[in-house]
Simulated scan of single mutants.
Amino acid sequence: MGVLKAYRFRIYPDAEQKQFFIQTFGCVRFTYNHLLMHRKQNSESKLTPALLKKDYPFLKDTDSLALSNAQRNLEKAFRRYYSGQSGFPNLKNKSNMWQSYTTNNQKHTIYFEDDKLKLPKLKSLVDVNLHRKIKGEIKSATISARNTEEFYVSILCIEEVEKLEKTHRKIEISYCPKHLVHFSEEICPIHFNQEKLLGQINHAKRKLRLRAKIAKKRKVLLANAKNYQKQKEKMNRLLVRRKYKKEDFINQLSYFLVENFDYIFVQENNSEDKYLKQEFTSNDWQQFLSKLRYKSEWYGKQVIIS
């Protein structure tokens, strides 16, 4: 069975590559915003990235597939708006923590060579922390950066997935704010412990509040307070670590259930007990269910939600 599967890796671009990525982020954002503003003002005429290049020649220096994908993303945003799934599309902001662009693999323009990645329009290879082997055919790559400091690539592939062996077992699960999942039987799944990390985050928050008080006492704007900004960056790194740790746990736990049970009965009770220590929100639960659904479909298992 051919399925779409994504892989995410940390990449380590050199100075020239970083400049290329930052420039591409800007061109993609510029294209998206101009197409959006044109659509607001001229709903009948259609503007395309190719037409934009005539008035803004600097766009010719960037990856044309990235600009085309910016147009597709805007069209998708409007479809979601008209179907009532989301609000009216907003302009892209340069000050956003995360910036990204997506490019497509056409005739082997995206590939790995040892632990390096080849991307369209970029002549040199980018260093990658290739911690997992990609088995499928590469369809696209999304380059993203956090504060233009940490860079990542998400590779989307078409991959053949074999059905898992039947276990003839079933299990009932429900939402648990503390452990994410409550099981109907005693099993030993993947354990999750973030107490140490939460302690570090709380310590960082207290330190950040102290830095803010000191800056206020000195009558310095927080944007100009170097110690405050350094501590804020430290706290943000810890929050990102927590996010990735939680995502990794959700991935492992969903696969564990699909691997070990043929039938997974889900009790959809998302009530949150305010007196119970909450480490997982209802959004985490919905993310877990989403992964459980598509993995069960991949591997020939069944999820029954009641």
Rank of each mutant, 00 (worst) to 15 (best):
F58L: 02
Q286F: 10
R146M: 08
L198M: 15
M1W: 11
K246W: 09
I134L: 06
I264M: 05
K18P: 00
N260M: 02
K226L: 10
N283C: 11
E162W: 09
R169H: 12
K40D: 01
G84M: 08
K230W: 08
V266Y: 05
I171A: 01
S296L: 01
Q200D: 09
K277N: 14
I138L: 02
S86D: 04
L91N: 07
R29I: 06
L35H: 04
L130I: 07
P57Q: 10
N104S: 10
M235E: 07
K245M: 15
S290G: 15
K18I: 05
N236T: 10
H203P: 04
H203I: 03
D14K: 03
L221H: 15
V28W: 02
N269W: 00
L221F: 14
R146Y: 12
V181P: 00
L119H: 05
D115R: 03
D115F: 10
A6S: 15
K232S: 01
R80N: 14
T62K: 13
V153L: 07
F256Q: 06
N96P: 05
S68M: 11
P49W: 00
D284A: 01
K245C: 10
M37R: 12
K291M: 13
T48W: 04
Y255V: 06
F25P: 03
V240Y: 13
E172Q: 10
V303W: 00
S64I: 03
K5Q: 11
N260E: 11
D262P: 00
D115G: 03
F58V: 03
Q41D: 08
Y275S: 15
Q17C: 06
Q287P: 00
Q231C: 11
H168Y: 13
Y255I: 08
E44Q: 12
Y111F: 08
R293Q: 04
S83K: 14
L91E: 06
W98M: 09
Y263C: 04
A141Q: 08
N236V: 06
A77K: 05
